Computed example of a mutant assay.
Amino acid sequence: MSTLLVLGALALVARTGCTDNGLNPSGVSDLDYTDVELGLTPRGPRFDVAHSKNVTALVGKTAQLNCRVHDLGNRTVSWIRHRDIHLLTSGRMTYTSDQRFISVHNPHTEDWILKIRFPQRRDSGVYECQVGTTPPIGHRMYLSVVEPVTTILGGPELFINTGSTINLTCVVQHSPEPPPAIRWTHKEEEINYDSPRGGVSVITEKGETTTSHLLVQKARMADSGRYTCAPANANPISVQVHVLSGEHPAAMQHGGQLRIQYPISAAMLSIIVTLMGCYYKQDIRNIL
């Protein structure tokens, strides 16, 4: 009877592949699936840093810091400003008297957005998106609020000889992205590059520093007036152009463009040179 029980037990082992040495019938060790993650994502909230990046914004134009949190569950997302360790928002509630700060969340997404209306340069700094776990976890981002600077080289006044080429160079710096368009105007009217006058063109080079060149060939008196460079994402800047019919006695010429430089100092220098010449002549006479 005992022999039959042993044979039955061995048969059961053979059918189930269970052996006391941890090997299956083929001789390969069985896996303990309770210790294998099988590609499952980790449990608990985690930040998607690829969609939670630093932001550069323009002064006065709404800035948005995005925080994407996977597997948030029923936990709360808060925004904290590191400059003064101030709780700005928690969930969709705002906890600051500065009403420029707003928490935005669409229930169908994993994005929690801190929106800052009318940002100023003082708003630049570190902001933390924090999840209310135990202990809390957070992801920090840097907001840089910049104010683009627009300049026209050689301004605010330019003096041009008749028949020369007017070359106005507008430079846009400190812009988070190149301006999508730069508008040039003359006497408050947008310049038409296809006008019957002809000889008017613009060349724009975009990059970290964007440069736009307005070229007006064979300048004439009618080309005098106020020219304005107006980038789409920066403040406009103007220059007054004077087209001269003849030589300007107190001007310096640079490639057809004339600029008055320190007229009072030049006059004083002329007087001093004249007086020195007079004294020099008097000294010569005394010697003779």
Score class of each variant (00 low, 15 high):
T3I: 07
L7K: 09
G8I: 05
A9C: 11
A9F: 14
L12P: 00
G27F: 09
G27R: 03
D30C: 02
T34C: 00
D35M: 12
V55G: 05
T62V: 09
T62F: 02
T62R: 12
N74F: 05
T76P: 07
H86S: 14
T94E: 07
D98I: 04
D98Y: 08
Q99W: 10
R100T: 03
S103C: 02
K115H: 00
F118C: 01
Q120I: 10
R122Y: 13
V131Y: 09
I137Q: 10
E147H: 12
I152Y: 06
G154T: 03
G155D: 01
S164T: 08
I166E: 08
T169L: 09
T185Q: 01
D194N: 15
D194W: 11
R197D: 07
S201I: 00
S201T: 14
T209L: 04
L214D: 10
V216T: 04
Q217F: 03
R226I: 14
Y227V: 03
C229D: 09
A230E: 13
N233Y: 06
P236W: 13
I237R: 13
H242Q: 06
E247V: 05
H248P: 00
R259F: 13
A267C: 01
V273Y: 09
V273A: 11
G277F: 04
D283K: 12
R285P: 02
I287D: 10
